[in-house]
Design a protein around this nucleic acid. Sequence first.
RNA 1: GGAGGCGUCGCAUAGUGGUCUAGUGCGCUCGCUUGGAAAGCGAGUAUACCGCAAGGUAUCGAGCGUUCGAAUCGCUCCGCCUCCGCCA
Length: 428
Amino acid sequence: MLDIKFIRQNIEIVKKAIQNKNIDLDLDKLLAADERKRHVMTELEQLRSEQNKKSKGPQSPENIEESRGLKEKIKLLEKELEIVDKEFNDLALKVPNIPSEDTPVGKDESENKVLRQVGKITQFNFKPKEHWELGQELDVIDMERAAKVSGARFAYRKGAIPLLELAVINYTFSVLTNEDTLKKIGKKAKLDISSKPFRPIFPPVMIKPEVFQKMDRLEPKEERYHIPSDDIYLIGSAEHTIGSMHMDETLKEEEMPVRYIGFSTAFRREAGSYGKDVKGLIRMHQFDKLEIESFTLPENSQKEQDFIVAIIEHMVQDLGLPYQVLIMCTGDMGKQDARHIDIEIWMPGQNKYRETHTSDLMTDFQARRLNTKVKRVSGESQYVHMNDATAFALSRIVVAIMENYQTEKGTIKIPKVLQKYTGFKEIK
RNA sequence: GGAGGCGUCGCAUAGUGGUCUAGUGCGCUCGCUUGGAAAGCGAGUAUACCGCAAGGUAUCGAGCGUUCGAAUCGCUCCGCCUCCGCCA
């Protein structure tokens, strides 16, 4: 959500963001609702003030009679306020975050901009296989039995794959919790930034509807798993329960940035992606993910995102995988995003780059409704800025490793940095 | 799942229908005092919204209700604690 005061004072900027992000919203309607709401509020406050004055001390019968009249008027106005407020809220929720200056304006994904490509595309002197073929042949991925037991888009990962995933988890935690490593990454990226380590978090995987809404992640609801008996949702990312953990809290400037590296299972209905990526681990109803979440001072949030992207690139390079970095255009970025950066790793079996990481700079868009603030040394309170990003989506990084590290014999080498965690060098 | 208790200003507590515009203590900030500090004394010390301001309104876990008037009474929900049951 944007600050309504900001909206009032920057109507043209907000209108442009609405247009560039292809959002169906008439801002003038919101402004009208805002004015009506304030008008009703003022009137209501005057009445309440009168009521408060009248209800002090012992009451005469005439006084009580007058107060009764006031009570009726207040009731009516409260009803009216409720209606106006709902209208205002419904419209205000649709207002998108303002894209950063370096975000390209564009209609759809075709206008996303490749910022850089790193690493040489993996070359083979044989025809590389797709990961599900390899998985089946090596008996480490079993989609058929998963379909029998749970349905489409589920998998049993077996044998070496769970060990590989655990290795990625351990490796990621070792990078993100090591201050020296972070310092080096920041220096290499020429960022003047704190090297404070990320704190490991295993968050809950279920979330209350109202908190989900405050994260602005409940919609589209068709994408979410809902458990009606308890009116609770399964998270689609650890972001959902880590980003909200400081709801209604005021952090101290001295403890900023507050950085987390979370791990959780993510649940997605994948509504509307019928027929897309039906084979293999690319698009699953359930997958495990390492997620970065960071709370910063407003002036540091953009740099924080640059740092997070640098960390991800460092890790992808460590794994020896070729990738490209994209900045998403206005038409393809999320409503909540100020800047949205994706990393796509080359998948030889599919012969293309596939999205493996997403980094979202939210500025104060989520913090405003979550009511997460920071008390500055000056004494002033401000909403914190938030960043979230994929550290690794385990299933997709497994795909990338399998396809890039396959051999002609149909075995899969383990990237060097992971070998000390897996305890083996090859899946065969 | 059952029974009971509890949720008040950063923390601890007082408050059982109007005097609560929420008291007190601790903590914190500033000042006085001091060579400096402690103690002591004095002042200040939640957030949001509206307003140029004076000021007003809301918030005592959340919501709904009773009442002329609710921190206080009733209902629902959430959370915490104790005991029992069950369970990994």
